[in-house]
């Protein structure tokens, strides 16, 4: 009972922190700060994965998103964006109408989803293990698995070719 309450309140705390840092990430003027805020939001999403019994995905999220992608993004920010220049406008003129569209979409979705009554999740099942994920990846999903390797290789070569100077 008490542990249920504790885990639920920690989930809502993490969700609120993630939402706050997502808002910070899209509104902050300094691009470097907004990348750091996005890192906190990605860690929050990793915690949400743990709540959903997807520990492997949480680790993948931390390794790939926080470890690799955000490092790349911060490198790109330091190479391009003029973060020292305080006079550049960072947002365009469509703030008000974008706020209306985004918040009306969020309101509509929340309205629909809050009336959504799903049957309670089945609790008594064998937990999904990493071995099962690996077995599925190399038997049933082997074609997409190989395709994603080719896509990643192509992205590697392509980005190196695009960004080099003549």
């Amino acid at each position: 009972m008490w542990s249920n309450f504790l885990s639920a309140s920690i989930f809502y705390l993490i969700a609120i922190v993630g939402i706050i840092f997502a808002i910070l990430s899209v509104t902050l003027k300094n691009m470097f700060h907004s990348a750091l805020a996005l890192i906190v939001m990605l860690l929050g999403v990793a915690v949400v994965y743990i709540y959903l019994d997807a520990e492997f995905l949480a680790l993948v999220q931390i390794l790939i998103y926080v470890g690799a992608i955000m490092t790349l993004v911060i490198f790109a920010i330091m190479l391009t964006a003029e973060i020292y220049n305080k006079n550049i406008k960072r947002h365009n003129q469509q703030k008000l109408i974008s706020l209306i569209i985004a918040s009306s979409m969020a309101g509509f979705l929340i309205f629909v989803l809050s009336r959504f009554k799903a049957q309670a999740g089945v609790s008594f099942f064998e937990p999904l293990t990493l071995a099962m994920i690996g077995k599925e990846l190399l038997t049933k999903y082997v074609l997409p698995f190989e395709l994603i390797s080719i896509i990643l290789l192509a992205a590697l070569v392509g980005s190196a070719a695009i960004s080099k100077k003549e």
Binding site: A76, A81, R90, I101, L109, L113
Partner: peptide, 23 residues
């Protein structure tokens, strides 16, 4: 699902308003 909807709307707002391509 509500958490995901809120995050999606925040991302939509960011796509609409950011000037910088990295943003």
């Amino acid at each position: 699902l509500i958490l995901s909807a809120i995050l999606f709307s925040i991302g939509l707002y960011g796509v609409f308003t950011r000037r910088s391509a990295i943003g």
